[in-house]
Design a protein around this nucleic acid. Structure first.
Lengths: 346, 346
DNA sequence: GCCAAAAATGTGTTCGAACACATTAAATAA
DNA sequence: TTATTTAATGTGTTCGAACACATTTTTGGC
């Protein structure tokens, strides 16, 4: 295998035919005689020809449309970095003819998700990127995409029965286990642990399972783990609820918050004058980082929302532009964040 | 700003000139009258023209050469993933006309580094990628690159007085601090800590500083931290040395190993029947992972050698191909690895 | 006002792949 | 055998930027 760049013209010359014939062989377009085919095929087998993706792309000269359907970052700050990741990738690939359009839905309103879904499918983009908060609606959307031959990519959380869609995110069960193993290093034998869901979304149950599984696997474990779901979105009601919960469970001193809202719990605990609680939460929101740096949150797990979004868009783009293959599921590492390394993740 | 793709031809038409004139304006090639310049300039200011990088690249049609000068992975397994990262990126960009050549040097022999250096510079590649283990020799190499207009990228460890070279790696001082903060969570008040250098390379001192700084910053800290350097490369001599060291410092129960050789220490400790020592080390070598999973290493810090290499090559490639800018220094996150999340980093 | 030199502007070709179209060779029917 | 369809093959153009080259316009000198 000689290291050189071969062109169609080269191959044609080597095989003693014209570039048109080589082209027909390469693309199985027929209208090639056996003799000609074999001459070309022989050369192709010798040289490991790889078409120049740049020339190919220039010729195609197509504008690829990727539509992103995401929760409105104004309504939940968790989605701000996701939005940034999409924008970054969009800018990077804009001059390559990749056109990214963003659509926001209200994360507290399934109807808004469905409405936007239909609009997007109707506009027939080349690919769709979404965070499937609502299971049923999301599955309907993905099915619809399949039917209309729209590529689909998913971030944040996996849906069950979901093959052949690009997924980029974390293994949420394992993420719960990581949280548990960190908790394990921090607590004493007689600590009681609470798993706190604040405005629970379905996939957070998976984190809870992982967390519990870790401790269940240890035969010596006699820990008490209580799971609690808080629904209040207003601060006041939430603080009262927390107070109530702690009165009923006075022994609890360690908390695992299953989403980005650990800072809310910290604030509530501070109001109740309950200090030195052990807290593990998710995501690098400004409030969380502040508490992490102050030692009021012990560990954060980084779900890399920005990277999820960036990677999805760039995988799709590079697939369209250069035919790059990508794995159907890409599980990102579960990053453990402390005061000391948080800086490098921002 | 209308969202459309403009070509030079479009601009020429809009400005009422020929594409040649537009080209001269875009590239400041002179030979343009004031009137023509202003006509073109006006259009350019209106439309935010970005040249099609694909077409540009096709026209250039140049083969870019990147030479990588790295320690032989056969002589130190730490460099295996670095090698993999280079290969992966090389394959990815091969069809774009990026030609990556690897050169290995003996990490225990500065002469072999110098010799290879000279060969590479003499062959005048477009860029050089290296891991600068030897300070003086590396600085000479980088200077030489500058003079010959060879781009240079560096991974693994930073050299001082090193501007305008692409660096991709971790902040080693901070990495020591991360190790310390993890140690802090694991130890008791009266534990004694040892910092262990096995076959020390100069930059490992930086990790030690970071580690010590963390504990110094705490006014309440009365910890004893001993630093020890082991030089033996053979197992037998090493175990004896460790034994000796422990006899002299019987109170030491926690170890921070500043490179990928934590597994050697674990083995030595096992031979001495010293169990439940606390150990924090670096890098996901197979041996380290085994001990991590068995609970004999508490934390590993992942230096992402593969990613460092991959990123360097792809940054250089994308710079050459598409004119992508890159930051002079890119500090990668300092990943904390436990039994629970190690799987996702492999 | 005319010619030569210089400046300004326009035209044409290239890169490699893709595909439309033109041309030639082989196969079939009259 | 000749006309005519069909198969096989070759040629030419396009994508957008870059640059070589050709052409036109302007300027200065007499």
């Amino acid at each position: 295998m000689i290291k050189e760049k071969y062109t169609i013209k080269d191959i044609a010359q080597m095989a003693g035919v014209s570039k048109g014939t080589v082209d027909r062989v390469l693309h199985n377009r027929g209208k090639v005689s056996k003799i000609a085919f074999e001459k070309v095929d022989k050369v192709l087998k010798e040289i490991d020809y790889r078409p120049n993706p740049i020339a190919r792309n220039l010729k195609r000269n197509k504008i690829y449309r990727i539509d992103a359907l995401l929760p409105d970052p104004k309504l939940d700050p968790y989605w701000i970095p996701v939005n940034e990741g999409v924008i970054e990738a969009a800018n990077e690939f804009a001059s390559f003819g990749i056109l990214v359009t963003k659509h926001f839905y209200n994360p507290n309103n399934r109807i808004s998700f469905s409405e936007q879904s239909q609009k997007i499918v109707a506009s027939k983009p080349d690919a769709l990127l979404t965070a499937p908060i609502y299971r049923k609606e999301s599955q309907a959307l993905l099915k619809s995409c399949c039917e209309h031959h729209i590529m689909s990519a998913i971030i944040n959380n996996l849906l069950d029965s979901m093959d052949r869609h690009l997924f980029i995110g974390q293994d949420l069960n394992q993420s719960g286990r990581v949280a548990a193993s960190l908790m394990d290093k921090l607590i004493d034998r007689n600590d009681h642990i609470a798993i706190i869901h604040i405005n629970r979304e379905p996939h957070m149950k998976v984190k809870e399972s992982g967390f519990k599984d870790y401790f269940m696997a240890r035969p010596d474990s006699k820990l008490t783990i209580t799971s609690k779901k808080f629904n209040s979105t207003e601060k006041k009601g939430f603080a009262t609820d927390v107070s109530q919960f702690l009165e009923n469970n006075p022994k609890i001193s360690a908390f695992f918050v299953t989403n980005s809202k650990a800072h809310m719990l910290v604030e509530a605990l501070l109001e109740l004058n309950k200090k030195d609680a052990i807290i593990i939460g998710y995501d690098l929101l400004a409030e969380n980082i502040t508490f992490l740096r102050e030692g009021k949150i012990n560990f954060l797990i980084h779900q890399k929302p920005k990277r999820q979004a960036y990677l999805s868009v760039s995988h799709l783009a590079e697939h369209f532009l250069f035919g790059k293959p990508f794995p159907p599921q890409e599980f990102l590492p579960i990053d453990i964040i402390t005061t000391e390394n948080v800086h490098y993740y921002l």
